[in-house]
Amino acid sequence: MKMSIVVRTTTKLVSPFLVTYAAYLMFYGYLSPGGGFQGGVILAVAVILLITSHGYKQVRKKFKFNWASLIESSAGAFLVLLGLVGLAFGAFYANFLPSEGGIIVPFNIAVGLEVGAAFTFVFYILLRWVESD
């Protein structure tokens, strides 16, 4: 089911800003409140807004179900790898990066991608179930 032209146009205009804000939260979440989880939720909201305003079938062509699954599993594997590499430096999730923020920045990015892909993945699954009725 498609929404009105106003809703579709507004969603197309707002979604890039949501993705940009989600990236900002993931990259700079260690400086202020926010971070990976909040950025991931906002990232998923951008995709879910497009799905609800343009219809599942049209958005499914651009944002594949398999891509959400691949991003989710890759981000989860990266989180485990980050913890194991930290273990090699002396402690689980040890801060082994000399930059400002250390491992918090790649950790927030991985968590954001994991959460965003997981919410999108769950929404896709729910829509498949609803469309099968």
Rank of each mutant, 00 (worst) to 15 (best):
M1D: 09
K2C: 06
K2S: 10
V6I: 13
T9D: 12
T10P: 00
T10M: 13
T10Q: 09
K12E: 14
V14A: 01
P16C: 08
L18E: 09
L18S: 03
V19L: 15
Y21I: 14
Y21H: 11
Y21C: 09
L25S: 09
M26Q: 06
M26G: 08
M26Y: 06
M26D: 06
Y28C: 06
Y28H: 12
G29N: 10
G29P: 04
Y30M: 01
Y30P: 00
S32K: 14
P33W: 05
G35Q: 06
G36C: 06
G36T: 02
Q38P: 04
Q38L: 06
G39Q: 02
G40E: 13
G40S: 14
A44P: 02
V47F: 15
I48C: 04
L49S: 04
L50C: 14
I51G: 00
I51M: 08
S53D: 10
S53P: 08
S53H: 12
H54E: 09
H54M: 08
G55S: 04
Q58K: 14
K61D: 12
K62G: 03
K62T: 14
F63R: 02
K64D: 13
K64A: 13
N66H: 06
W67L: 14
W67I: 13
W67K: 07
A68T: 11
E72S: 04
S73Y: 05
S74C: 04
A75H: 05
A77K: 00
F78N: 03
V80L: 10
V80R: 00
L82N: 03
L87I: 05
L87K: 15
L87A: 14
G90K: 03
A91W: 09
A91I: 09
Y93Q: 12
A94H: 12
A94Y: 04
L97I: 15
L97D: 04
P98Y: 11
E100Q: 10
I103T: 14
I104N: 12
P106I: 02
P106T: 03
F107R: 13
F107T: 09
F107V: 01
N108Q: 15
V111M: 12
G112R: 04
E114P: 00
E114V: 00
E114W: 07
A118L: 15
F121G: 07
F121L: 15
F121E: 08
Y124E: 04
Y124M: 10
L127E: 12
S132G: 07
D133Q: 14
